[in-house]
Design a protein around this nucleic acid. Structure first.
Length: 284
DNA sequence: ATCCTATCCTGGCTGC
DNA sequence: TGCAGCCAGGATAGGA
């Protein structure tokens, strides 16, 4: 599922094809994807605007728009589970599960295809309302071991749901949380306020290492959903240590990986490398 | 403050 | 083979 590394890959590949282009058409074949905007309003917010920048914030694709050289709102995309963004020559027949099509002034179109319809491609005036509550970027300058240690101690939550909370830390999803916790040797149910500085340091390093390597490999593709805008699958799934490996031997110690459910999410752990907390965490 | 459940969706899988 | 039912998954809202 698209998490930070997949979205970063999408942004990097879309950027050279979009920056400098002007939008000359906009249409949604599934209205909810564009926030229930009427067709005319969608066109009004987009057509005639030039794409000034394509960046990423958390799992959002952020496209800065301008008109006559002045800032003129944004196009913000979230792929959720099955969304795909890519550029095609104009006039291609409708794709299965196509939701939005934006025409560019160079004879190409930006397509948003999304099987499960959870994704969004929104035309907004300001980013604040959409992105204001997000936590720091794990690969950015505000994230390091000291910050993480302090932030973990300020909360009393199990590690996994906390790391999945986008207002705590932005960009991690189910896969990379499981992989980072394994790499740090930490059980997903460990209480955040009981981690010492060394464990926080391991976790910070693990998060950064997993994300950086996943970006290098253009994300993870283990089903038909995620492909890069250039149409390729990622390859980080070949590096999974725990995710999707229920019953298979841990690559470090041979103990069978075990799947459970934490925070309503499939959760994968090596019982030996990630010992369960002694006390029932956050017992109720 | 934190947890739990439901919701949004569909394709793919399981089991009968 | 056909079909019902379940499940995954990110974000969010609402209730406990």
């Amino acid at each position: 599922m698209p998490e930070l590394p997949e979205v970063e890959t999408v942004v990097r590949q879309l950027r050279p094809r979009l920056v400098g282009r002007t939008l000359v058409g906009a249409a949604a074949s599934w209205r909810r994807t564009v926030g229930d905007l009427a067709p005319a309003e969608l066109r009004r917010r987009l057509v005639g605007k030039r794409i000034a920048a394509v960046t990423r914030r958390a799992k959002y694709v952020v496209v800065d728009l301008e008109r006559a050289g002045k800032p003129a709102g944004h196009l913000v995309g979230h792929l959720r589970m099955s969304g795909r963004l890519f550029v095609e020559p104009a006039g291609a027949p409708s794709q299965p599960h196509e939701r939005v099509r934006l025409a560019l002034d160079d004879g190409h179109e930006l397509l948003f295809v999304d099987v499960r319809k959870f994704g969004r491609l929104l035309a907004v005036d300001a980013l604040e309302e959409l992105l204001g509550e997000l936590g720091p970027e794990p690969l950015g300058p505000d994230f390091d071991a000291a910050w993480l240690h302090g932030a973990l101690r300020a909360r009393r939550r199990a590690l996994k749901p906390l790391l999945l909370d986008q207002t705590f830390l932005a960009g991690l999803g189910n896969i990379y949380v499981d992989e980072a916790l394994f790499r740090a040797g930490l059980h997903p149910l460990r209480r955040s306020d009981r981690l010492d500085a060394r464990a926080a340091e391991r976790l910070a390093a693990a998060i950064r290492a997993v994300l950086a390597e996943a970006i290098r490999r253009e994300g993870s593709s283990f089903d038909t959903f995620y492909r890069t805008p250039e149409g390729r699958p990622g390859s980080y799934q070949d590096q999974f240590q725990v995710y999707g490996r229920d019953g298979k031997p841990c690559r470090a110690c041979g103990t069978p990986i075990r799947r459970s459910v934490v925070s309503q999410r499939g959760t994968h752990v090596c019982p030996r490398c990630q010992p369960a907390p002694r006390l029932r965490p956050l017992a109720r």
